[in-house]
């Protein structure tokens, strides 16, 4: 974690990671200082890139489009977005991230909301899934499992997942689907309300005639259960297939759990 005392050397390192990008160092420092809780030290370079791209630096934007945005495309493909729709969705994601939704007048680029608690690509992936789900809401329903899976990062998205080989992702997919199947009907419905129907806590609370803080607790618990079930199943599936299980699961722990948390709340 980065604290105030070490901000400047860490910042310099982050800035140095992207030569060619020009951004006011003081503004960047202010931006980082305002992030609560503070970003991880190893994510500062990503925070820098995000900030620079959101601020309009051309080099940063290009780097963002070349290196980061493809993660969004990967997520959208998992969602089964058709080729034509893919472009449009990707454009919307790009717009939301770089420019925000306002028209004339200040919109807020979503990239400024990235807090550096995980890899930027993984974060963008989740944003893309949410965007896409919002767009799809009128049309044929996307299964909950697919939505969750789309948010799961690839090894390319997140260095924590470097031990995850291709076929493991399939195992993970199965594990998540099975885990979803093991949730209670209410838990699944809650997740769908939140993720697919985009309901607020108050609205879900109205459906169950309970207070929104309880809904929040239920949602967290559903998500935690989903994660625990998936993790346990994955560990079972992978047992014997690799001697790096513990590293893999540890990597998944932070990366995937974080993505699930972002996606499902």
């Amino acid at each position: 974690m980065v604290d105030d005392a070490s901000i400047t050397p860490a910042l310099s390192a982050a800035i140095g990671a992207h030569p060619g990008v020009t951004v006011d160092a003081d503004r960047f420092r202010t931006h980082v200082a305002a992030i609560e809780p503070p970003p991880r030290a190893d994510a500062l370079a990503d925070v820098y890139l995000a900030f620079a791209a959101a601020s309009g630096d051309a080099v940063a934007v290009r780097a963002f489009e070349t290196n980061i945005l493809p993660a969004a495309a990967a997520a959208l493909r998992v969602l089964g977005t058709s080729r034509d729709a893919l472009d449009e969705s990707l454009q919307r994601v790009r717009l939301a991230l770089l420019v925000g939704r306002g028209l004339d007048g200040p919109g807020r680029p979503r990239l400024l909301d990235y807090r550096g608690h995980g890899a930027l690509r993984a974060w963008v992936r989740v944003i893309a899934v949410r965007e896409s789900l919002m767009l799809h809401r009128g049309a044929k329903e996307i299964p909950l499992g697919d939505a969750v899976l789309a948010a799961v990062p690839d090894p390319a998205d997140d260095p924590e997942l470097r031990y995850m080989r291709g076929e493991m992702r399939d195992q993970l997919a199965i594990a998540i689907r099975e885990a979803l199947g093991e949730l209670t009907p209410r838990e699944r419905t809650l997740l769908r309300y939140s993720l697919l129907d985009d309901l607020t806590l108050d609205e879900i609370g109205a459906i169950y005639a309970t207070h929104k803080s309880t809904i929040s607790r239920w949602l967290s618990r559903a998500r935690e259960r989903l994660w625990e079930l998936a993790r346990d199943r994955l560990a079972l599936r992978l047992a014997g297939q690799t001697d790096q299980i513990s590293s893999l699961v540890r990597g998944l722990q932070s990366s995937l759990e974080l993505s699930l948390e972002r996606l499902l709340g």
């Binding site: 989740v126 609205e203 459906i207 974080l258």
Partner: peptide, 25 residues
């Protein structure tokens, strides 16, 4: 489910909108 969701949106006066927490708020 979507029917119920729609009804819920209608039901709750949307003066304050609180999303389930996600990074980026």
């Amino acid at each position: 489910r979507r029917l119920v969701a729609a009804a819920a949106r209608d039901h709750v006066q949307r003066d304050t909108i609180e999303r389930p927490a996600s990074e980026g708020a």
